[in-house]
Design a protein around this nucleic acid. Sequence first.
DNA 1: CGCGGCTTTGATGTTCATCAAGTAAAGTGG
DNA 2: CCACTTTACTTGATGAACATCAAAGCCGCG
Lengths: 231, 231
Amino acid sequence: MNEKKKPCSCVSCDFRAVVFTYLEDTTIEELCDHKEEQFFRKGEIINHEGEKITNFKYLKSGLVKLYRRTSDGDEQVITITRPFEFVSNMSIFSEERYQYSVSALEDSVVCMVNLEFIKGLFLKNGGFAFSLLSKISRISDKIIAQTLDIRQKNLIGRVAFVLLYFTNDIYKSRVFDLPVSRKEIADYIGMSTANVIRTLSDFKKEGIIRVFGKTIEVVDVGKLEIISRHG
Amino acid sequence: MNEKKKPCSCVSCDFRAVVFTYLEDTTIEELCDHKEEQFFRKGEIINHEGEKITNFKYLKSGLVKLYRRTSDGDEQVITITRPFEFVSNMSIFSEERYQYSVSALEDSVVCMVNLEFIKGLFLKNGGFAFSLLSKISRISDKIIAQTLDIRQKNLIGRVAFVLLYFTNDIYKSRVFDLPVSRKEIADYIGMSTANVIRTLSDFKKEGIIRVFGKTIEVVDVGKLEIISRHG
DNA sequence: CGCGGCTTTGATGTTCATCAAGTAAAGTGG
DNA sequence: CCACTTTACTTGATGAACATCAAAGCCGCG
């Protein structure tokens, strides 16, 4: 056992299964030399709208929101997402600068790989290129579909949708701590903060959810699903 | 001059510059054997939501709308677009079936290349793969950005936006024939048909536009821009 | 313990959808 | 080519949905 260098953590990284499937162990180790892991505390900004893109970034752990600021200064939240949906990187191959900002909603770990290195891999390795394209277009599709889904709902349907999104997709639990403010929910679903709060209060009064500050318990998932579908 | 077969029209196709830049003439001629051109009359459906994807399709000429049908049966128009934005193909590498429908708003010509052939090219040719990924992600980004832009506007801002879109992007002319019904505009901007019509009437009364049935003349572009921005 | 930001609730007004009724335009069949 | 049918468009009136404003309560943090 003559080990040349210490084993690369990327070789056993969960993310490998997602887009790095087609890379040999040796390539993965090379990748290791071009990557850096960075920790972001809740609230910190990972990518800034307008900033130059120099890295291929993806979320290893945590929770982030993708958003932009309108000319009047208010925020539009595009999506809230978990690891393996490296949303910040939709436009890395089509744009020079970030179109949107990304910030950490929970403490998060981001893996950053030099963009030129990834481009090189992409050009050399068809399988890698293919899985990357699939992943990126699936993410874009998901954002577009979600936006359309939200658009066809009314206020209470949208709030129900968000609660279900946290319960089913993000936390996979009926009890969870809201990682966002009421205002951020409003910016996400395109409604006013006051009305989001009002709707949450209504749900509480009707016994559909229980609220303890930031902690939410979804009592009646079925009812929420009906509301989400039919307003 | 011993010509083996008749020259392939793809070699001199305008679209070649868009995603087929990295392909040699010989490859392009091979591509020719796997492609078919199809004509669609105004109103005809090019792709059907749910249908299996077997071809890489792009628009050579004409105008199309990308849309989906909600569970209540009404339409959501996702985007309206000109050639070289092969919107139907965003998900060709990530999904087995079309997520959305595409129909022709004007007589259109669509080029269809066998999907497996394109996948083969993608795997073999890094440059081609790269330009294709860039193109696809740019299209997705554009749709997402446009959706966010529309979302932040009120009724009259959205109608102004659509008129400017036709004037500046689609027709590049202040006078044009509307390729869509009032209802389709409503489905596009997420407002009711009656209110779209009302707003057009208001614009007419204020002398911002002139309307002769389907023909529209934008008289005051500047005013429309102000309305689009500030409602 | 006091300040500032987030949350909550009520009151009010605006914006927009819906409904209905009528008109114009565009197909359709004899 | 005309009568008929259907579909698209238009306008007004009404009410529902939602935003805005304001005041008060809560919570965390210095």
